[in-house]
């Protein structure tokens, strides 16, 4: 049974590089953290979310673990990105959005209470976007932006953070000689790692990744995934992905969403090899989605 399911994952139509997939898919189970060994960091309970009058999330409840990678998967329009953007209140920037019911607590603090400073929240909960979006500034300026807006001007401190962040994002060796060139001069994969470096420069606790590899080629994707493994030693990572291979490769736990509802949430290994729900099984085995 087990081997059959693993093989079916590798054949999922999402993957742009079927030839690279089988070897990786086999890798999956070994790299996943054992379940139940981590503390809960984020508690989402009974969340109903609306875009204007249209409800996008229905009664979602799930607990996310500290210093683990959690993947949100599901077909397009299932609400996984919406939920992700609720976690640092990026949805506040869109007119007419509202949470009608339910709470999101990080370390027990409800982040939607009126007395919450959204700016502070976003410093703690960093984000990496689907399309790499470095500012039209130098590499150095890109990374120090988050610190400068907090008023940190000390050159030595900034230099130190730039090196640490770039090393953290496995980009230091590639760009150390051209820190003052435009961030837009980098290749797509490098730009995305620059965005990751920029996010970790402000030392958040949580990093949200919204399909970080969807615009990257397989080699660049492999590098970012490698990076995610490194990053989870320090950060709690939540990643939205369309690629089930990716979810299988990088995450410890996986949540499957379907039309705004959490369908199944469990250890990644369980979700891919022994899903309880028929819908989940159909999706992870590539029968729909």
């Amino acid at each position: 049974m087990v081997t059959t399911r693993t093989a079916s994952v590798s054949l999922a139509p999402m993957d742009s590089t079927p030839s690279a997939a089988p070897a990786r898919a086999i890798n999956v189970p070994q790299r996943n953290e054992p379940a139940g060994s981590a503390r809960t960091l984020i508690e989402i309970s009974n969340l109903d979310f609306f875009y204007g009058a249209k409800q996008a999330l229905f009664d979602n409840t799930l607990m996310l673990d500290e210093k683990r990678v959690t993947a949100f998967i599901g077909p397009s329009g299932c609400g996984k990105s919406t939920l992700l953007r609720c976690l640092n209140r990026m949805n506040d920037l869109i007119d007419g959005t509202s949470i009608k019911r339910g709470t999101i607590k990080i370390r027990g603090v409800d982040i939607y209470q009126p007395d919450v400073d959204v700016i502070e929240l976003r410093k703690r909960v960093g984000m990496v976007f689907q399309k790499s979006n470095p500012f039209p500034k130098s590499i150095y300026e890109n990374i120090t932006y988050g610190l400068r807006i907090q008023g940190i001007q000390s050159k030595s401190r900034l230099d130190e953070v730039v090196e640490r962040s770039l090393r953290g994002a496995a980009l230091w060796d590639e760009v150390k000689d051209r820190l003052h060139e435009s961030g837009l001069s980098l290749s797509g994969g490098q730009q995305q790692r620059l965005c990751i470096a920029r996010a970790i420069a402000v030392e958040p606790e949580i990093i949200l990744m919204d399909e970080p590899c969807s615009a990257l080629d397989p080699i660049a994707t492999a590098k970012v995934e490698e990076l995610i493994h490194e990053l989870k030693k320090q950060f709690t990572i939540i990643i939205v992905t369309h690629s089930m291979q990716q979810a299988a490769r990088v995450s410890d736990k996986t949540a499957f969403f379907y039309i705004g509802k959490l369908d199944e949430y469990d250890d990644t290994r369980t979700i891919f090899m022994n899903p309880k729900n028929a819908q989940t099984e159909a999706y992870v085995s590539g029968r729909f989605g």
């Binding site: 920037l93 410093k123 984000m127 976007f129 979006n133 470095p134 500034k137 932006y145 402000v202």
Partner: peptide, 26 residues
Amino acid sequence: PRAFREASFALGATRLQTIVKITIPA
């Protein structure tokens, strides 16, 4: 691009900081 503003907000910038440091220079 909207992405510049979003990236800035996601790093904990206020609206004014985003306007002055990102939107206007761009």
